[in-house]
Simulated assay, not measured.
Amino acid sequence: MAKEDARIPAEIGCLDTENLRVTLISTVGAHCDVWQTAGYHFEREKNRAFDMVIKRHTLSCNSLDVKIYRRDYGMLKKQLHDIIPEAIFVRTRIDGEENMLVLAQAFTPWFNLANPAIAEDAIPLMAKLHKARLQLGLFIQTAKEIRTNQQKVIDLYVLDNLVLDRNKEVRYLDSFEVFFHEDLLYMIDDPCEDLREKIDVSVKRLAYLEFLLASANELAATLS
């Protein structure tokens, strides 16, 4: 749904949105619009240009929300390393209201990994990609450990969250609400069905990723 040569339709305290040319990438994420810009120059680094993804939070977001988002993202970054893009969580004002913006390292999705409907394509592809299989194994192991130890389910509800980029490396591209809190299903009397569905889908897709990795490893062994 890319919309090229546009501008972000908001006043953002830390960005010159009037003169910043962007491409709209997505509006289907968790409470955010996603834009991308090429060759952006920061005020303090005029001699360097950056390809950057800009994620604008579309709901109100206070300082505690920002702290939680940053904490969860940082935990994933620490454990998953370069699978998680570099990102800055910025408290700023959007259209005059306190909110949050994420400025993230830009990666172009090339292949969706968490979609069981394309397993026939994914298995032979991953069988040829040794580094990607190692990355996927680390992702699966980390996601399972976090679920077991912290009752948090990594968000795989949005299909574009886990991808191969153009260099055929695994990237997890979500930034806001990277976890669903599974314990909420048992702590409250009437849990939101939307939350239950997102957790169920994410758990099923994680199981599919295990199948994908096992199948790709098995096929790779026959190719070597």
Rank of each mutant, 00 (worst) to 15 (best):
L159Y: 09
G74C: 07
T108P: 01
L219Q: 15
A122N: 09
Q141I: 03
Q135A: 10
R93I: 05
I146M: 01
N161R: 10
Y157T: 06
I12G: 02
E177H: 12
I199H: 07
I83A: 07
L101H: 00
V201Q: 05
E86T: 13
E120P: 00
L101R: 01
N167E: 14
G13I: 11
R7W: 03
I84W: 00
V203I: 14
I83K: 09
F176C: 03
I25G: 02
P109M: 09
E98Y: 01
A114W: 01
N167A: 15
T108E: 15
M1P: 02
D200M: 07
K128Y: 03
P116D: 09
Q79K: 14
A106R: 15
A143Y: 01
S175T: 15
F89V: 02
S63G: 02
C32S: 14
I54P: 00
F179M: 04
L212T: 10
D65L: 03
I154M: 11
K168R: 13
K77L: 08
D51V: 04
D174K: 12
A87N: 01
Y208S: 02
R171K: 15
P85D: 09
I154R: 02
L206V: 06
D200H: 11
D160Q: 14
A207H: 10
V22C: 02
Q150G: 00
H41S: 10
D82A: 09
D190N: 14
E169D: 15
A221Y: 07
L206G: 03
N161P: 04
Y208G: 07
T92G: 02
A38L: 10
T58P: 02
F50W: 08
Y73W: 00
E43T: 12
N167H: 11
I88Q: 13
N19R: 13
M52P: 00
K46C: 07
A49Y: 04
M52K: 07
L213V: 04
D33I: 03
A220Q: 05
K77S: 15
A122L: 15
T222I: 02
A216C: 08
L103H: 00
A216V: 03
A38Q: 12
A87F: 01
L76P: 00
K144C: 11
F111A: 12
Y73L: 04
E193K: 12
Q135V: 09
Q105M: 06
T108Y: 03
A10S: 13
P85Y: 05
D160P: 01
L136G: 05
N149E: 14
I188F: 09
A143E: 03
R196F: 05
L156E: 08
D190C: 09
A132M: 08
S63C: 04
P124G: 10
F107A: 12
L206T: 10
E11Y: 05
A114I: 10
L209V: 07
V203H: 06
